[in-house]
């Protein structure tokens, strides 16, 4: 293992977060806070309890997941896209670094950032709504697993994209709608049966469901199924990244 390289890339990426602290941390925290104020405190007061918890508390896991998914994708995609854009990626590709080390450092840094951000949002949420975490270790596990999985997706996106428009397109047109329709703000039990079935095609449903289970002990989908699905997504994304490196897809002519 070239640990010096892994460390260099990881710290380089974390330094970028420090340089762009407002954009990286403060902006997502403010937008999530607005969600809590509007949906949790203002509108939430008129909504009865969902699955035994107040609506404000109910949306906490979903909102964290919303932030976690979008930030993981955008952090990782930008991290690998920007060197491609500036063509400084020549250095990475000519360095004595394995594909695994590249993924470990870039995806590790992106996942670290989004996990830290999620914990900050969690702390922010506690200011607005009372909530409990029944399974804190599982909560952290799902947080890290989801961050890694979607950072991997972001990494794929960053390699695939050849312009900034494409880089924005997938989060805007796919990730955000899937997250909103994935039960972030409601239980899928609240949907008509047909739409419940359709919802099960949405991968985010499993992630939100499992994450909410770690908070309140109840889930839309059995936790084991959610865990299996999350691991499946990770495996699929790992396989795609391996294929990209093996073939040099959009990296090496």
């Amino acid at each position: 293992m070239n640990w010096h390289a892994v460390r260099a890339i990881y710290l380089f990426e974390m330094a970028r977060t420090r340089r762009t602290l407002l954009q990286s941390v403060l902006a997502p925290v403010i937008s999530t806070t607005l969600y809590f104020v509007v949906f949790g405190s203002a509108i939430g007061g008129y909504i009865p309890e969902v699955e035994g918890v107040s609506y404000g508390a109910f949306i906490v896991p979903g909102l964290i997941m919303l932030s976690l998914l979008t930030q993981s994708v955008s952090n990782a995609s930008f991290a690998i896209f920007f060197p491609k854009f500036t063509r400084s990626i020549y250095e990475l590709l000519s360095a004595p670094v394995s594909h695994f080390e590249i993924v470990l450092s870039y995806v590790g840094a992106a996942a670290t950032k989004s996990v830290l951000l999620s914990l900050i949002i969690l702390a922010t949420a506690s200011v607005f709504v009372p909530f409990r975490i029944e399974h804190p270790l599982w909560m952290l596990f799902f947080l890290v697993l989801t961050a890694l999985t979607f950072s991997m997706l972001g990494f794929i996106l960053g390699i695939w994209a050849d312009n900034f428009e494409k880089l924005q397109l997938v989060p805007l047109l796919i990730i955000t709608p899937l997250t909103f329709l994935g039960g972030s703000f409601y239980s899928i039990d609240m949907l008509p049966p047909a739409w419940q079935t359709v919802s099960l095609l949405n991968p985010v449903v499993y992630l939100v469901s499992a994450f909410r289970w770690s908070f309140y002990g109840s889930a839309d989908v059995a936790v084991g199924v959610s865990l299996a699905m999350a691991l499946l997504f990770l495996a699929v994304f790992v396989a795609i990244v391996m294929w990209m490196f093996r073939t040099g897809y959009r990296l090496k002519p």
């Binding site: 070239n2 010096h4 390289a5 260099a8 920007f82 500036t86 400084s88 020549y90 990475l92």
Partner: peptide, 22 residues
Amino acid sequence: TTDAFESVWNTVSFSRGLFGKP
């Protein structure tokens, strides 16, 4: 082909680490 926002010192130190040197 350089990064835009890094300092000279950081980018040169980064390259050394990338090539496996302490």
